[in-house]
Design a protein around this nucleic acid. Structure first.
Ligand SMILES: [Zn+2]
Ligand SMILES: [Zn+2]
Ligand SMILES: [Zn+2]
Ligand SMILES: [Zn+2]
Lengths: 130, 130
DNA sequence: TTTCTAATGTTATATTATTACATAATGTTA
DNA sequence: TAACATTATGTAATAATATAACATTAGAAA
């Protein structure tokens, strides 16, 4: 096996695919596309995805059950994520706004809850689809 | 059938259950609990849920695949939602903050995307679980 | 009444995700 | 190195979530 800070074989295979993709990929789409690389079962994909999400290399778009590579060095290891999603073409973009992340990271609700993480998804129409 | 602004029988049955619940309910939990009322199939539940989400009576907690009744009159009919989620006890609370909703509704990204909707989920530990 | 639309009922199936268990690789420490 | 703990893997089976397809019915609209 490998050290913590390196990716294992399956993790690297999955990450390579997700990073090459211009759109969020679903778990079974990933599975289909990595079968030629020796990954045979859903669980192998899900395990790799779990780890990659945990270390912030990819993010899950919850409303789409799909995964996208992180292209935002300032997203604090999967703890603070924001995306824009076009409801027509389904294009997803990771939002990188210092103002937004600062605002949300500092947000306190009235119940005194202590937040360690957030995920924000904006929906609308992208430039092309308007 | 009934007029648009009234709920149909199945919609009302599902809404009643979700409103009575102190926690988000999953679709199949709902199904199980409304079978005595005559709802027999998943699709009947999903159709009711879809409509109730559409009109803002309930919200879907995307990260949990679960549904919660709206307790926030100011949430613009399912267009602007924010929740806090305790990662230990799984308690979910709808956040009702004028400042937050104003900030997010006015948020513009650099790609010039026009947003019509957002969903925000905060994760952390609630008072009790800290 | 006729026609249209939205909701319903029902069956089957698709999609997404996890449990369980056996094995192997690596890290840790004595 | 040997012993042990931890993490990753492989595999099969199954659970959980969600939708497709089609027939029917209730009400709205004209
Ligand atoms: Zn990121
Ligand atoms: Zn678009
Ligand atoms: Zn609400
Ligand atoms: Zn809690």
């Amino acid at each position: 096996m490998q050290k913590q800070n390196f990716l294992t074989k399956n993790q690297q295979i999955v990450l390579d695919l997700v990073e090459k993709s211009s759109e969020p990929l679903k778990a079974y789409t990933i599975l289909f596309n990595v079968q030629k690389k020796g990954i045979k079962a859903p669980l192998q994909v899900y395990r790799a995805l779990d780890k990659l999400v945990e270390i912030g290399k990819i993010h899950k778009i919850e409303s789409r059950n799909a995964f996208i590579a992180c292209h935002n060095s300032s997203c604090q290891v999967a703890k603070a994520t924001a995306f824009s999603i076009c409801e027509i073409c389904e294009k997803v973009t990771e939002i990188s706004s210092a103002g937004l992340s600062k605002y949300l990271s500092n947000f306190k609700d009235k119940d005194g809850m202590k937040y360690s993480k957030y995920n924000l998804e904006f929906f609308g129409l992208c430039k092309k689809c308007r």
